[in-house]
Amino acid sequence: MTSKSTSPRRRQQPPIALVILAVAGIAVFIVPLIGLLARTPWRDLPALLTSDVVVDALRISFIASIGATAISAVLGVPLAWLLARVEFPGRSIVRGLVVLPLVLPPVVGGAALLFALGRRGIIGGPLHQMTGLVLPFSIWGVVIAATFVAMPFLVITVEGALRNLDPRFEGAAATLGAGRWTVLRRVTLPMIGPSLAAGLALAWARALGEFGATITFAGNLQGRTQTLPLAVFVALETDRGAAVALSLIMVVISLTVLIVLRERWWRPL
């Protein structure tokens, strides 16, 4: 593509070393996918996809990732608003805490959740005594573990959008008679809509892929806490075909999300 530049400059050749490294970079993404497709037992695929292990894992993953995304939205949007709009002491510390799960090894997160919410944990103990509810090794544990790792994506995305939103829009809405809720519902949320959607998508994708915190906090019980990634891990030892099928499902889901979101939502990022 030639630019409208008036100077007749020759197109510069990119440095060859850079191109080689970049192609190697592409290979990092492509080679594993090729490997997966090469090993896919296409003929057995329908049977594998409808096997108990796969269906159970799909169900658990679906519930857990949707649940984690919903909780992330309900708690994360107000948190993002607080971080973006209210100056309070320790705000930078809170922001650091929110981002921590992004860099913390998930296994450590799962262990921490266990110490806090386990049956003998500092909150889990009293909770069990009062209500009989046991969070670890239940679907709730899966949801909590996924929320722990997924919510930061939503919070930082939405907070960034709120910071970039000119506060005069909300001011203008207020002068037109809109109360706080109306401003939030009709101005703030629609205006950060693309970023909110991107944050939800990122959080959901992260929740879907969650492994370490889940296996540590919620265990790996088929039909109760075994998600797609956990099922892949187990199947690699027992049934390679099932592992490939499960992996393929996750690749297809991820690609679908990417393609659907690319045009509509990822551009503003």
Binding site: D166, R168, F169, G171, A172, A173, V187, P190, M191, G193
Partner: peptide
Amino acid sequence: FQDYVLFPH
């Protein structure tokens, strides 16, 4: 408002 601040959405 200055620059009118119409709601873009």
